[in-house]
């Protein structure tokens, strides 16, 4: 049943088999995608026709490799920049929210906290449409009143950042709060007693204590941004992010170049996971 209790071998092996099947289910799509990224065929399907790097580097009439595909490369770049800015923004505001909700008492706290965790249970679609509705309304209002068209409020880069940040901050807040709850508040009081100001106490005591959570919070926000589709699709302008670009191609013009970019992402993520695991081990 558990490690310390004896088990029949049928139970043990049966259980192991089930978990094995589950993990196969989990990695199968990633493996299949990765393998087909190197298939020397114009179709994303078996049979295997030999090994090639074409889908990464080629630039011929019927094959455009990932690194030759300007639109794709640009969308990767857009996604990285979006994720960086959104990650930093979420980190700052999410951390502030964690400090606010864990350490302070004030009127209306419950209501604000409800709003702060609401994005967990609001479908991304809804966040997307309500933000585009609002920004359009506000932009329209501003233009009518002043004649000036606030560009950052029309669909495009900044609206995507804002839309993703609206729920990214929630995740950072939860990650940072979890660590902050383990923080001994007398440490901060000790800093105050040693004549630090409140802001100095946060800077020299609280923030260093939170550092691991801040790093993982940023990483999670970055990854959420990088792979977000549901909210982003409503907010993009002329520069699609990678998931939006990929979606369009999956629906309308798929070639194995999609596998190439997917393979690249799988490699980056796996490396990231392995490094993480290694650092964990060392501790």
């Amino acid at each position: 049943m558990i490690r310390s209790l004896p088990n029949t071998s049928l139970y043990r092996n049966g259980y192991r088999f089930y978990v094995g099947i589950f993990f196969l289910f989990l990695v199968l799509p990633l493996v299949v995608i990765s393998v087909l990224a190197f298939n020397d065929s114009n179709f994303i399907a078996l049979p295997w026709k030999g090994f090639t790097f074409d889908w990464f580097f080629a630039n011929t009439d019927d094959r455009v490799g990932l690194f030759q595909d300007e639109d794709l490369v640009r969308s990767i770049w857009v996604s990285i920049v979006t994720a960086l800015i959104m990650g930093l923004l979420s980190l700052g505001v999410g951390t502030a929210a964690a400090l606010l909700f864990v350490q302070e008492k004030f009127r209306g706290k419950n209501f604000l906290y409800f709003l702060a965790i609401a994005p967990l249970v609001i479908p991304g679609v809804i966040l997307g449409i309500s933000i585009i509705l609002t920004s359009t309304q506000v932009a329209g209002g501003i233009e009518k009143a002043t004649g000036w068209d606030p560009e950052f409020l029309s669909p495009g880069f900044w609206l995507v950042v804002l839309g993703q940040f609206s729920f990214g901050a929630t995740y950072v807040m939860l990650i940072v709060s979890a660590r902050l709850k383990k923080f001994d508040p007398t440490l901060e009081e000790a800093a105050l007693s040693l004549k630090a100001t409140k802001l100095e106490a946060i800077r020299y005591i609280t923030i260093p204590f939170l550092r691991p959570a801040l790093i993982s919070g940023f990483a999670v926000a970055f990854l959420i941004s990088f792979s977000n589709f549901n909210t982003t699709i409503f907010l993009i302008g002329s520069d699609p992010t990678l998931p939006v670009e990929l979606f369009t191609r999956i629906k309308f013009s798929s070639t194995p170049v999609l596998n190439a970019i997917s393979f690249l992402i799988v490699v980056v993520i796996s490396t990231f996971a392995l490094v993480n695991l290694y650092l964990d081990r060392k501790k």
Partner: peptide
């Protein structure tokens, strides 16, 4: 921070992210 008193806390509240020297120097640095 403007009162001429300091506290030694029940939990001691030593800053775990700093060494002995940095702990003692903390207030003077502020």
């Amino acid at each position: 921070e403007e009162r001429p008193v300091n506290i030694v806390f029940q939990s001691l509240a030593l800053f775990p992210m700093m060494n002995v020297y940095e702990n003692v120097a903390f207030g003077l640095r502020r």
